[in-house]
């Protein structure tokens, strides 16, 4: 504490409280930059060093990180919306109306949630296209591509289950149309439709089921899949790059 240059920044990053939380000083040298990553619960999923190529905007277009940011925005705004919404046929619609008219920032938060959800479906799909067209699915990343396809499907199902919750004409008929498709499948179709709706038609049981799926079951699945997806990026050697192509130029693995 006595060896610093005496500046305020120095005072902040060298006292016992700061050091108990962050362990290292401000990351202005490579050792501390490395420690800032490995000592942080939030950042330790990152490697200490990344390939320069991975940072090229025209390679990734940042689509993966944007998908994740959208997911975070959806969790925050979604949890906030839950304070004002009860999944009941009697009150769901008026709850949403109140959000629009009576709750402070209600309309903004609901719009944020809605548009983030739409945008996430788009961005996740574009991310999948990016990964395909750059050949980033190839060995050793085969399985992470599979997880990615599942994440795309879960994203759409999550968005779809949220669609019913406002209980307006748009949501009611969209869900009726979609579950009727399920109902037309041979043998399992009708039982599956009834399992989704909890009744012969969309009503109170369907609303509660979609709500539970939307706020806990599917987000939990999503979090686990995202966790595996990120973890596999590290285990599979970071983002793909053309440098790997020469390492193994033929069909052998």
């Amino acid at each position: 504490m006595t060896t610093g240059n005496g500046s305020i920044a120095d005072f902040i990053t060298r006292n016992r409280i700061w050091r108990s939380i962050f362990r290292q000083g401000y990351p202005d040298n490579d050792e501390n930059r490395a420690k800032a990553i490995v000592n942080s619960w939030f950042l330790h999923i990152h490697p200490v060093k990344v390939k320069v190529h991975s940072l090229k905007l025209t390679y990734t277009w940042g689509l993966g990180i944007i998908s994740f940011v959208l997911f975070l925005i959806l969790i925050v705004t979604g949890a906030w919306l839950m304070f004002f919404y009860v999944p009941s046929v009697q009150s769901a619609y008026t709850d949403v109306q109140n959000l629009e008219t009576a709750v402070t920032f209600g309309a903004l938060m609901r719009s944020l949630h809605r548009w983030s959800a739409h945008l996430m479906v788009v961005v996740v799909f574009l991310h999948m296209c990016r990964v395909f067209f750059t050949g980033a699915y190839k060995h050793p990343r085969e399985f992470n591509w599979v997880i990615g396809v599942l994440l795309w499907v879960v994203t759409m199902v999550l968005s779809f289950t949220g669609y019913l919750l406002p209980w307006d004409q748009l949501s009611y008929w969209a869900v009726t149309v979609s579950t009727n498709i399920v109902g037309s499948f041979p043998l399992i179709g009708e039982p599956l439709r009834r399992l989704l709706l909890g009744a012969a038609e969309a009503g109170q049981p369907a609303l509660v089921r979609f709500y539970a799926l939307h706020i806990i079951v599917l987000p939990a699945i999503m979090v686990i899949l995202i966790g595996i997806h990120f973890w596999r990026i590290r285990k599979d050697g970071g983002l793909s790059s053309p440098a790997e192509a020469s390492e193994n130029g033929n069909d052998k693995q």
Partner: peptide, 18 residues
């Protein structure tokens, strides 16, 4: 998203009616 949401409201139609 903040700008988008500030200018374009999420849709809400009439109450669901089977």
């Amino acid at each position: 998203l903040l700008l988008w949401s500030a200018f374009v409201k999420a849709p809400l139609r009439e109450l669901a009616n089977p």
